[in-house]
C-alpha cells in the first residue's frame, strides 16, 4: 500500500477557475467544443487559441502541463492532418512525383489539426481544475433534467464515482496477484506474444473473482448504511452557485455566438 496511485489529473493549486462550480466549467467546456466546429474562420480559431492560453493562465496551469495532454494522441492528430492534406481539390500547391497537395487539402489539414489540438487541451483544463468527485456531482446536477426521461442520473453518478474509487484498489490487487503467480514460477516478461497473453489467464481469473466478491461486499455495506437509491438523498456539500460563476456562462455564450457570426 506504499505506492501512491492517484486517479485523474487534478492539479492542486488555488485559482479563480478551480473555485468555480463544476456545472459552470462543464458548460464552458461544451461551449468551447461546439464553438470549434461552428466556424471555419482562421481568425476565430486563432482567437480560440488565445482564449485557451488566457483561460489556462486564470487557472494557474502552466502551458507545458496542458501541452503534455496531447502526447498520448499525437499519432492520431498527425494521421488526421496527413489524410486531410492529401485529399483535396483546387489548385496544386506542391507536387512531389505522383503526390500532389492541393489548396483545400492544406486548408482542411490546418483546420482539423488546430481543432483537435485545441479540443483536447481545453478539455484537459476541466480535469486539471476539478476533482473527480466534484465533476461527478456537477454531471449529476447538470444532467438532472434527464431524470424526466427516466435516466437514473444519480445512480449513474454514484456508480461512476465508486468505479473511479475502485481503480487504484484493483490495480493494487492485480500487482498482488501477479506477484503471487510470479512466486509460483510464472514468467510474464519472456516468451512470444501468444505466450505472454496466455500468461495472463492466472491473473485475469482471480481478478474477476475478486472484483465480483468486492462488489458483493460493497453492495452489502451500502445496504447496511441505508442506501435505497438516489431518491430522497441529500448531500454533505451540495453544489451552490456563486456570483462569479456567471462569468463562465457568459464567456461560454460569447464563444458560441462568435462561432455563429464569424
Amino acid at each position: 500500500m506504499t505506492r501512491d496511485i492517484t486517479f485523474g489529473q487534478y492539479y492542486n493549486v488555488n485559482s479563480f477557475i478551480h473555485d468555480r462550480d463544476p456545472r459552470a466549467k462543464l458548460f464552458i467546456t461544451f461551449a468551447y467544443l461546439i464553438g470549434l466546429f461552428l466556424s471555419r474562420s482562421y481568425y476565430y480559431i486563432g482567437g480560440m487559441a488565445i482564449f485557451l492560453i488566457l483561460y489556462s493562465l486564470m487557472a494557474r496551469l502552466e502551458l507545458p502541463l496542458v501541452l503534455r495532454t496531447l502526447k498520448p494522441v499525437r499519432l492520431l492528430i498527425l494521421v488526421s492532418v496527413l489524410l486531410n492534406l492529401f485529399y483535396g481539390a483546387g489548385d496544386v500547391v506542391l507536387s512531389v512525383g505522383p503526390i500532389a497537395i492541393k489548396e483545400t487539402g492544406v486548408k482542411s489539414a490546418i483546420l482539423i489539426g488546430s481543432r483537435m489540438v485545441l479540443m483536447i487541451m481545453f478539455s484537459s483544463t476541466l480535469t486539471f481544475t476539478t476533482m473527480p468527485n466534484a465533476l461527478m456531482d456537477g454531471m449529476e446536477k447538470g444532467f438532472s433534467w434527464l431524470k424526466l426521461f427516466k435516466v437514473p442520473v444519480s445512480e449513474l453518478a454514484l456508480t461512476m464515482s465508486i468505479a473511479l474509487r475502485f481503480i487504484p484498489i484493483l490495480k493494487l490487487e492485480m500487482d498482488r496477484i501477479m506477484d503471487a503467480q510470479k512466486a509460483r514460477g510464472m514468467d510474464f516478461e519472456n516468451g512470444g506474444y501468444i505466450k505472454r497473453v496466455k500468461a495472463f489467464t492466472p491473473v485475469i481469473i482471480p481478478m474477476f473473482v475478486s472484483a465480483v466478491k468486492r462488489s458483493e461486499a460493497l453492495a452489502m455495506a451500502m445496504d447496511a448504511r441505508c442506501y435505497t437509491g438516489g431518491e430522497g438523498r441529500t448531500k454533505l456539500h451540495p453544489l451552490r452557485y456563486k456570483k462569479e460563476d456567471i462569468i463562465l456562462y457568459m464567456l461560454g455564450i460569447g464563444i458560441i455566438a462568435a462561432g455563429i457570426v464569424l
Binding site: 448504511r225 441505508c226 442506501y227 435505497t228 438523498r233 441529500t234 448531500k235 454533505l236
Partner: peptide, 10 residues
C-alpha cells in the same frame, strides 16, 4: 454516505 441516504439536511 449514511446520513445522505436517509435524507438528513446538509
Amino acid at each position: 454516505f449514511g446520513p445522505e441516504n436517509i435524507g438528513m439536511p446538509s
